[in-house]
């Protein structure tokens, strides 16, 4: 995020966070609407920032970790906004925007590399592959946040001492449904992204990708989130335990996104 648009979008996310955090303690209709508007404006500017970067590189803007993380943050914001509008639930906004700010703030600590992308990174197939996979990670991140809120709210309910913000939180059932729909969305995007990746690798690279560690980790992600979806409907797992599993699963996503991409993979190595 080197351009002014990126900084401006970060400022808008921060302003949106302030509004979301405020309505947790004191509800204001107009403040809630303002929070959503600021988030939407941040998303719009963030999109133009990504576009600008893409033009500079003459390719999709995620050929390095910086671009990929920025796209991840953008997709997380877009996915959350969609969920907020669909579920008419703003009380999760403070947590999601806080995560966005942390993520983008951390991104600023790393100098971006604006070198021309490799020829293989050109073309719609690659763009779709990376966008869908990044979108999947964003959806998993959202399910992680929702699961953490579930666990916190469940703990408050069991402690029988609800605080001021408690009454503004979504119901446990709503959080559970939102987290699961987020995981469904993530798995669908991941599956589509993997298919695109396989086709791209065959057509353009001509190499076998099955021995790449990234494939094994992606398979593990399918298994652990599939297990979560199955267990979350079963006795003894339904509720807090499933939420805990969902939150824990995200550590594998993070591992795949950072360590695997940086050090283990051949095809997903960020420079």
């Amino acid at each position: 995020m080197t351009n002014h648009l990126a900084y401006l979008s970060l400022a808008l996310y921060a302003a949106s966070f302030c509004c979301y955090a405020r309505i947790l303690y004191a509800p204001h209709n107009w403040l809630g609407r303002l929070a959503t508007l600021l988030l939407a404006a941040g998303i719009l500017l963030h999109y133009f920032a990504l576009l600008e970067r893409s033009r500079a590189m003459h390719a999709v803007p995620y050929d390095d970790l910086y671009g990929s993380m920025s796209l991840f943050a953008w997709l997380l914001a877009v996915t959350y906004l969609g969920l907020e509008v669909f579920h008419r639930q703003r009380s999760v906004g403070a947590f999601v925007t806080f995560l966005l700010i942390l993520w983008l703030g951390a991104l600023e600590l790393r100098a971006p590399v604006e070198k021309p992308a490799s020829p293989a990174a050109h073309g719609p197939l690659f763009a779709l592959h990376v966008t869908l996979n990044t979108w999947a990670y964003a959806a998993f991140a959202l399910s992680f946040v929702l699961s953490l809120i579930y666990l916190a709210e469940n703990r408050i309910l069991r402690s029988r001492h609800p605080g001021a913000a408690f009454w503004r939180f979504p119901a446990l059932e709503a959080l559970d449904v939102m987290a699961r729909s987020s995981v469904y969305m993530g798995l669908a995007a991941l599956a589509a992204g993997v298919v695109m990746g396989v086709i791209w690798a065959r057509r353009l690279v001509g190499a076998s990708i099955w021995d790449d560690p990234k494939v094994a980790v992606t398979l593990a992600i399918f298994i652990i989130y599939g297990a979560y979806l199955r267990l979350s409907r079963r006795a003894n797992w339904r509720g807090a335990r499933a939420a805990l599993l969902c939150a824990a699963n995200f550590s594998v996503v993070l591992f795949s996104y950072t360590f695997v991409n940086k050090y283990l993979t051949r095809f997903h190595h960020f420079l």
Binding site: L157, P162, W167, A171, L172, A174
Partner: peptide
């Protein structure tokens, strides 16, 4: 928040149930 939180034991119980089930 003037009318948001329950002021009777009966209503508080019902509102807490809504925190679980929506």
């Amino acid at each position: 928040e003037i009318g948001a939180r329950p002021m009777s034991v009966a209503l508080a119980g019902v509102k807490l149930a809504e925190r679980v089930f929506g």
